[in-house]
Amino acid sequence: MSEILKQMRERAGEAPGKGHRLLRLLTGLVVASVALTWFWSTSAVDMFAAPPLRFSDAFAGVLALLCLAYGCGVAFQLGSGRDDG
């Protein structure tokens, strides 16, 4: 048991693993989707008589924006290594 505790103390200073990052990403997606749904329901529906937004539509929109941002970041990183000079 003390060996396990030693390993846990040694790993405490390390960066979080992939599972932790995935959990944070999914939590962020859900929170952003709930916020978008709430914002749309309280502002656009009342002010502009727009149709209400379902959670699944908000989740898909936030996921699409995340993929777009990730794709732009990857493209920028790939292009930054080139030397066109």
Rank of each mutant, 00 (worst) to 15 (best):
G17C: 04
T37D: 04
A50T: 09
C72G: 07
Q7W: 01
A49F: 09
L65P: 03
E14G: 08
A69N: 07
V34P: 07
G19D: 01
A50E: 06
Q77E: 08
L53M: 01
C72W: 05
L78Q: 15
F55V: 05
A50S: 05
G73L: 06
R82M: 05
A60T: 07
S2H: 13
S33W: 12
V30T: 03
T37E: 12
R82F: 08
G81S: 06
G17N: 02
T42R: 07
A69S: 10
A44H: 03
E14P: 01
L22V: 03
D57F: 09
K18T: 08
D57A: 11
H20M: 10
T27L: 04
V30P: 00
L68G: 08
L53A: 00
A58F: 05
L26S: 05
A12D: 14
S80N: 04
G17V: 03
E14Y: 09
L78F: 11
A12N: 15
C67R: 04
G79Q: 09
L36R: 05
F76N: 15
M8R: 15
A75L: 09
L63R: 10
G81N: 12
F59T: 12
L65V: 01
V30Y: 03
L26H: 06
V31T: 14
I4Q: 11
V45G: 07
A64S: 07
A64H: 12
D83P: 09
T37K: 10
L63F: 11
V45Q: 03
C67S: 04
K6W: 08
L63D: 10
A60C: 07
K18A: 11
L23M: 02
A69H: 09
A60S: 07
L78M: 14
A58H: 02
C72H: 12
P51I: 00
A64D: 04
A35L: 05
A12L: 15
H20P: 09
A64E: 03
A60Q: 13
L22D: 04
A75M: 06
A75F: 03
F76C: 15
D84T: 10
I4C: 03
S41F: 13
A75V: 01
Q7G: 09
P51C: 00
F39G: 08
P52F: 08
M1H: 11
Q7E: 10
G81T: 02
G81L: 00
V62T: 05
L68T: 02
G61F: 12
T42Q: 07
K18S: 07
T27G: 10
F55Q: 02
L23F: 02
A60R: 05
